[in-house]
Every structure is written in structure tokens, then in C-alpha cells.
Amino acid sequence: MSLRLILDLIARLALWLLLAPLLPGIINKVKAWVAGRRGPPVLQLYYDLARLWQKHAVLSTLASPGFVIGPAVAWVALAGAALLMPLGPAGSALSFRGDMLLLIYLLALARFCTAWAAMETGSAFEGMGAAREVSFAVLAEATLITALLALCVQTESTSLVTMLAPAAGAGAVLLAAGLFTVLLAENCRVPFDDPNTHLELTMIHEAMVLDHSGPPLAVILHGAALKLLLFSLFLTEAVLPLGQLSTLAATGALVGGVLAVTVGVGLVESLLARLAFRRVPLLLTTAFLLCLFALLMAWKGGAE
């Protein structure tokens, strides 16, 4: 491994770690703006993380060391998935055929570790959250794989750099709608989950981390922000033809795209109510069908 690659990876990691907590701040600002409030500062999550990192932790008497190690492994998995993601004009530091599958399975590893840590406490609320998380992920993962297949067939390649460079073709709108829905589900945003609710019975992600505190909670919150940035980037790069633009334009399009997605999440959250849980599979199936149609269009487009 050359020195240059290591420096490249460190630079990327720093960029990811620093920028990720910005997104929840922007979403909250948008929500406050729609509601006519002033809202918390955009950098609020940074303050929270710094504060939590210094605090001492309270652990359940039932919890094993896995309660702390789980969030750490999940965070590593999410950061690893982020490093696999190409950054528009900067390309990817580590790219190989089939890297998109590693990305999907790293997300799965993060999910497993979060669910494991949630189950450590023996709490029914946390069990409920974990059960919902892993169950809805079945549909979300099928949707993601379908979206990846669509991109693979469209670009006739199986590595993220080449898959994400050109535009998504005829099925771009379908793909964007499907991926945006998956983004909302996987990041536990409205209409799948309400990050601000005070009723534990209706939560997914927040219910899983009820008993976490101090540094582990900081790691979990930062990991969630990384995941949100990862999905926004993926959506932007899948739809926009970044590979065909000049470096400056591509960077602008990338940043603009991620911002647009973030603002979109904020608007959805302001304008929609949370769905009843029995409707969640329905919405996810719709997202799956959207991606499936995108896949069929990609197939048809190439055949002509």
C-alpha cells in the first residue's frame, strides 16, 4: 500500500467525519424555517457530540461489553462504507469490481451491531426497535440491490466509480424516487420513523438507542449522520452525470445535490406525518417497484 493511498484515505476520512454532522443540522433548520421557528444552530450536532464525548456513561446492569463495542464496530463499518463511496470528480480511493456489494454488506454489519447493542439491555422498547429495524431492512436491502443492478446494467460495469459516473439514463426519475424512499427508511426519517417523537412505541432507530449514553451515544449519532451523508451522496451520484462535467461543475453539482436531498428530507419531515407501521412495508415495496422499473428501463435502453 503506497503512502499516497494512505494519505488519500486519511484526507477522505477527515472530510467525511467533519462534514457528516452538518446534515442533521440543515434538516433541523429547514424544519424550523417551515414551522416559523428560529430552530437550533446548524452546528448543534457538533456541540452535542463534543459534550457527549466528555460525559460519563451509564450502562445497564444486564449489558455485556458488546453494548459498547457494538456501536464502535457499527461506526467503523459505516466509515468503511463511506470510504468506498466515490466522491464525484475525486473518484474513489479504493475501487474494485464488486465494491458496491461490500458497501451494502458493511451497512448490514452496522445494522447488526446496532441491533445487538440494543438487545443487550433486555428492554422491550429496544427489542421492538431492533425488530423493526432488521425487518424493514429486508425490503430496503432488496431495493438497494435492485438499484445497484439497474446502475450496473446501465453502465455495464460492477464497480462504484464507473457505475456512478454517467447519468442514470431513462430510469433516472424512478431510481431517484426509489432511492430517496430508501434513504428515508434507512435513516429512520419521517414518514418511516419520527426522530423527534416522545412516544417510544412508535420509534425505530431512537428506540434502539434509548439506553445509550456518553461516548457510545456520540458514536451512534455520528454514525447515523455518516449514513445520511452516504445515502444522499449515493442518490446524487446515481442520478447526476458527474463524470461528464468539468471538475468544478461536478463538485458544485455534488454539493448542490446533497444539499437539495437534505432540504428535501427536511421538507418531507415538515409536510408529512409518520406512517402507520403496517403501511411501511407498502411504501418500501413501492420503492422496490420503482427501482425494478428503473432496472427494466436500463435493460431495455441498452438492448436498443
Partner: peptide
């Protein structure tokens, strides 16, 4: 680090 009962709301 402090140990306590599972909070469970």
C-alpha cells in the same frame, strides 16, 4: 462508568 437498571423509559 456507572451501572444502573435498564432505563426502559
Amino acid at each position: 462508568l456507572r451501572r444502573a437498571l435498564t432505563w426502559d423509559c
